[in-house]
Amino acid sequence: MNSIEIKNLTKRYKTFTLDNINLSIPKGYIMGFIGENGAGKTTTIKTMLNITKRDAGQVSIFGQDIDKDEISIKSKIGYVSGNMFYPKKTLKEVTKYYKSFYDEWDEGLYLDYLNKFNLDSSKRIDELSKGMQLKYLITLALSHHAELLILDEPTSGLDPVARDNLLELFQTIIENEETTIFFSTHITSDLEKCADYVTFIKDGRIIESCSKDDLIDKYRLVNGTEKELLEVKERLIAFKTNSFGFNGLIKTIDLKETDSFKVGQPSLDDIMIYNTLHKGGIL
């Protein structure tokens, strides 16, 4: 079963269009959503959640249509946007109002998580570090038994240790096979560590959306001499030249038996960078 299924989602702005987005996330897995700043990650998330109005397309979450069952769907979602709220209020105050919106609120679980994350509920939100704020938001989401966590750039602004902790927390959360996590990031190493699926967006279009292993299998990093570049140039997604020859990215299916240059496995970084470069070389 898919937790999220998006078909032909479209949102038009004057200077930017989110164009025909299709993606689905199977229940119980982590999907990472990568792309440059401004590629449309936040717009996709906001549009699929009806926070901004879409111009076309269908969104179904937990198998329910968002237009028909928005409230029931949202009561099972935890959404963490990059922006914090009520910085001058204490955790206790915010929680008091937050929980009144959820029938499924589990006070015992909430206290457990506060304890586990060392969160002091008498502190003000702006007294917490960025990492602790995130943990608080995740605590709120988990305490109403959210089955889907959607996080917009949760790791940006975190130090490496906090980031690693967070990614480990994601994997702990999905151990129960019930919870699905969808998070956007522009840091590909976040995905190397924990994502099961990866969706790659560029200029408002989805370039790839599949399991991370398949994504890496789909591409090959190649390097060779200038002479070899001439024979492969047309098949490359993009390349960079240097004084020794060239480096480039190619789709695995475009490789030929006769190719003589060196071929290797790309990292997600390579895939993102070369796909973002214009064909025909850097700049």
């Binding site: 926070i51 928005e70 409230i71 029931s72 009520y86």
Partner: peptide
């Protein structure tokens, strides 16, 4: 300033 709409954006409430 307080991010009031951030707080409400996915609460299970009618728009």
């Amino acid at each position: 300033a307080q991010g009031d709409y951030n707080f409400m954006s996915v609460l299970p409430i009618k728009r």
